[in-house]
Amino acid sequence: MAQQGGRPGSGSEPQARPSARTRRARLRAARVDPWSVMKVGFLLSLALGVVLMVAVTVLWLVLDGLGVFASVGDTVKEATQSENNSGFDLQHSLSLKNTLFFSGIVAIVDVILVTALATLGAFLYNLTASFTGGIEVTLAEED
């Protein structure tokens, strides 16, 4: 019984396909421009700040709609009140205005810090890349 297409030289093997060519490109990031990194870092952190503000607003509205602030506020007021003190008003402290004000401060600090840290990271990368040669990436494309 003859095997079909199995062993080389058996005469019944299919035509061998030509070998696939692979193109390769080696790229090296030896330096990054700190000004470009600062601009991109600023825009990304600004987008993150906007997302933070929208998320806090939506979360606050959902929690307020469910009555979480009212029930927790009543519990805190009841636990902290005394004969001469009416208790702590948690609902006033966690109002939408106060929550958005605090979130805005956090977003502004985030924009400043992320922009500064990204720029500092670019300077540190350039410093280390001058010693090590940078990051090398090999890209391959098969036909």
Rank of each mutant, 00 (worst) to 15 (best):
L94D: 00
S82F: 14
D74H: 11
Q91V: 10
F69Q: 02
T75Y: 06
K77D: 05
F101S: 01
S95E: 01
S95L: 02
A70K: 15
L90T: 04
S86N: 11
D89C: 07
L100V: 02
H92K: 14
V76F: 07
G87W: 02
N98H: 04
S93Q: 12
D89Q: 08
D74T: 13
F69N: 05
G73L: 04
N85H: 10
E83D: 12
L100P: 00
F88C: 03
V76T: 02
S86H: 10
N84I: 14
S71A: 15
V72T: 09
H92M: 09
G73V: 08
F69A: 06
H92C: 04
D74R: 10
E83M: 09
N98L: 02
E83K: 09
L96M: 12
N85I: 07
N98T: 02
G67W: 12
E83T: 12
G73I: 06
L96N: 04
N98E: 03
K77Y: 03
S82N: 12
A79Y: 08
S82M: 14
T75K: 06
N84Y: 13
T75I: 07
G73M: 02
S82T: 15
L100R: 01
V76W: 05
K97I: 04
N84D: 13
V72F: 08
H92G: 10
F88L: 10
F88Q: 02
Q81W: 05
T80N: 03
D74P: 03
V68L: 15
G67I: 13
D89V: 06
L94G: 00
S71G: 10
G87V: 04
S95N: 03
E83N: 09
V72I: 15
A79R: 08
S93L: 12
F88W: 01
S95Q: 03
F101W: 05
L94V: 02
N98Y: 03
S71V: 15
V76D: 02
G67R: 08
K77Q: 13
V76E: 04
G73S: 08
T75L: 13
V72M: 10
L100Y: 01
S95R: 01
D89F: 07
G87M: 01
V76C: 08
N98Q: 05
K97Q: 07
S71C: 14
H92V: 09
S82Y: 12
A79I: 05
A79F: 10
A79H: 08
T80S: 07
L96T: 01
S82G: 15
H92R: 12
V76N: 05
L100W: 00
V76R: 08
D89M: 06
N85Q: 09
Q91H: 05
T99P: 01
N85W: 14
G73K: 01
S71T: 15
G87K: 00
H92E: 11
V76Q: 05
T80K: 09
H92S: 13
F69G: 04
N85F: 15
S93F: 11
Q81F: 10
F69V: 04
Q81R: 14
F101C: 00
E78I: 07
Q81I: 10
